[in-house]
């Protein structure tokens, strides 16, 4: 890693750290930063310690993990599909997860135990991932990314139709909770989810970041990558499966949080270019940090009630991104 890349990543990591600390200060009750630091150190009064350690810290960590996973998956899929419009939910993973989640709500599993909903969502996401893979691998030699794209989109549409069909016959209460799940939220965060997601994402993240150089070649064209010595089919398959697994986990714990996985990689490219050795880790930090901030706004902006975090990511993110786009083009 060059010194310049290391410096850029260090800046982003520092920004993430600041966002994490700030996010623990804001909320229903604002806590000054020194008290936040005392609570993390295990001192200060008990209420503050509980709020910081049991509520806000696991939630902020989960926001970072989800945002980071979405940013990384978005950057990977854009390179894999060579499509700037690619984003983590394009290939039907989120629709599969939503089918699982809605099933859990409608069949009443989610009322039995809290963990059933994320598990059902995760299984739904896996089902979608492998259905899409099955379709794409049945059309000639190798994995045709155009078929992957088309197959992902139509399988997503099919699942969405299934959801709407089920919800048509559901009670008003079920309908409401299903819609809220689909809007995305980190409110269910706890240490269990944060630890589980950390253990799950770290290996996938590590392998994807190691694939930065083949992804560089792949992003300029499959034929070019092949002639540069990349084992193209293997890299494509690994990139698709690993990014889908990351998205499946993220969507299972937090629902569908849009925008992060589409825009964060583009924002990094606009400022620092497209070298995946920088882009992939930077998308993790920027995506994670951005979602930490968005979630903090979501739970503190409108008093006691929470705003859907997916709304905040778009409301805050789109103007910022447009500003960046205009300034870069000028």
């Amino acid at each position: 890693m060059s010194a310049r890349v290391a410096l850029r990543l260090a800046i982003l990591a520092l920004a993430v750290l600041l966002a994490l600390v700030a996010s623990m200060g804001f909320g229903a009750a604002d806590i000054p930063v020194p008290e936040v630091m005392r609570a993390i150190g295990g001192r200060g009064d008990e209420t503050t310690r509980t709020i910081v350690m049991e509520l806000r810290l696991p939630r902020a960590l989960l926001a970072f993990l989800v945002g980071g996973a979405l940013g990384l998956a978005g950057a990977t899929l854009q390179a894999l599909l060579r499509n700037p419009l690619a984003e983590p939910f394009l290939l039907g993973v989120s629709s599969g997860a939503a089918v699982g989640a809605v099933a859990a709500v409608v069949l009443g599993w989610s009322a039995l135990a809290a963990w059933t909903l994320p598990v059902a969502a995760f299984l739904g996401a896996l089902l979608a991932t492998f259905l899409v893979l099955f379709v794409a691998s049945r059309t000639g030699r190798g994995l045709d990314t155009r078929v992957l794209l088309l197959g992902g989109v139509v399988i997503g549409m099919f699942f969405n139709a299934v959801i709407l069909l089920v919800l048509t016959f559901a009670s008003a209460e079920t309908f409401r909770s299903a819609i809220f799940w689909m809007m995305g939220s980190l409110a269910a965060a706890d240490w269990g989810a944060a630890v589980l997601l950390t253990g799950y994402t770290v290996p996938a993240v590590a392998v994807l970041v190691l694939m930065a150089r083949p992804l560089n070649a792949l992003s300029v064209g499959e034929e070019t990558a092949l002639y540069l010595g990349v084992r193209v089919e293997r890299v494509k398959l690994a990139a698709y499966i690993l990014s889908s697994l990351l998205v499946a986990a993220a969507v299972a714990v937090s629902g569908v949080i849009g925008f992060v996985g589409l825009i964060i990689p583009h924002a990094i490219r606009l400022v620092w270019g497209s070298d995946h050795r920088m882009l992939l880790p930077a998308s993790i930090f920027a995506g994670g940090g951005f979602l930490v901030i968005a979630d903090t706004v979501a739970r503190s902006a409108a008093g006691p009630s929470e705003l859907p975090v997916g709304v905040i990511t778009a409301l805050v993110g789109v103007p910022l991104f447009v500003l960046l786009l205009i300034r870069r083009k000028a």
Binding site: A79, R82, S274
Partner: peptide
């Protein structure tokens, strides 16, 4: 072919 992303 067309290169979709900014590269130097």
């Amino acid at each position: 072919g067309e290169i979709m992303f900014p590269v130097t």
